[in-house]
Structure formats: C-alpha cells, structure tokens
C-alpha cells in the first residue's frame, strides 16, 4: 500500500504549479528551462500512465513473432539484428506483421513522448 495522492497525481499538480504560478515570474531567458521541466514531468506522467501491462502485451506479441523467449532488452536486440539481416525485408512472409508490430509500439511511444505528433496524423 502507498499513501495517497499517488505518483501520477503528484506529478500532475507539481506541473500545474510550475506552469500556472511560476513560469511567468522567471526572467525570459529562464522560461525555456521551466518549459523543459514541465515537459519532462509530463512525459514521466504519461509513461507511468501506460504502465507495465501494455509492455507485457507487446512482449507476448514479440515473443510470438520471433519464436524465442527472453526479457525485453534481449528480445529487442534479437529483433534489431534480424531486421538488419533482412529477415523481415519487403517480400518476406512476416514483413507486414512485423511492420504492424513496429507501428504499434512506436505509436505507444509517441503517445508518451509527444502525443501532439499523433494528432497531426
């Protein structure tokens, strides 16, 4: 058990105070840094929000695609090596499935790092 408010709530209110109460008081040359802090808090909050369940689901798909077992880092290494070796190049049987997988994980990551980029789609 953890005490409330939880991590996401704390990050959210901390970011609000920074943006609404503090940024305008800073000298112009320091505002950019405040915006960067606010952006970092927002990314951290979104990464927390997505949680481990999504990554677990992605790994299930990836293990199935690769036909091997292993931890996240090892699986992504194996995947990268196979892509470089041409295993999923255009015209290979798993090309479309692998591309769809890459798009899924990339969209999830854009959703965490800069969701506005998804709006422009």
């Amino acid at each position: 058990m953890r005490d409330r408010p939880d991590t996401a709530d704390l990050l959210k209110i901390a970011r609000q105070v920074l943006r609404n109460d503090l940024t305008d008081l800073l000298p112009t040359e320091k505002r950019y840094q405040a915006l960067m802090v606010s952006n970092a808090i927002a990314i951290a909050g979104r990464q927390l929000g997505v949680g481990g369940e999504t990554e677990r689901r992605e790994l299930v798909v990836l293990r199935d695609l690769l036909g091997v077992d292993g931890q996240s880092e090892d699986l992504y290494r194996e995947l990268s090596a196979r892509i470089r070796a041409g295993t999923y190049a255009a015209g290979t049987p798993d090309h479309a499935r692998m591309r769809a997988f890459l798009e899924t994980i990339t969209r999830r990551r854009v959703g965490e790092s800069n969701p506005r980029a998804l709006d422009q789609d």
Binding site: Q33, M36, V37, A40, R99, T106, R107, R109, V110, S113
Partner: peptide, 26 residues
C-alpha cells in the same frame, strides 16, 4: 535536461520513418 528530452524526439521520427517507407511499392 535538454539532452535528456532530445531522446524523446526519437519516437515521432521513427513513426515518420515507418510512414515514409510504406508506400514505395517494395
């Protein structure tokens, strides 16, 4: 902090790469 946040431009660049390499017919 600036270098740390630069790492977070990678996903949107990658999404663009996936989109741009889709329609070549190959």
């Amino acid at each position: 902090l600036e270098l740390a946040l630069t790492g977070h431009v990678i996903p949107e660049l990658e999404l663009e790469i996936l989109k741009m390499t889709l329609d070549s017919g190959h």
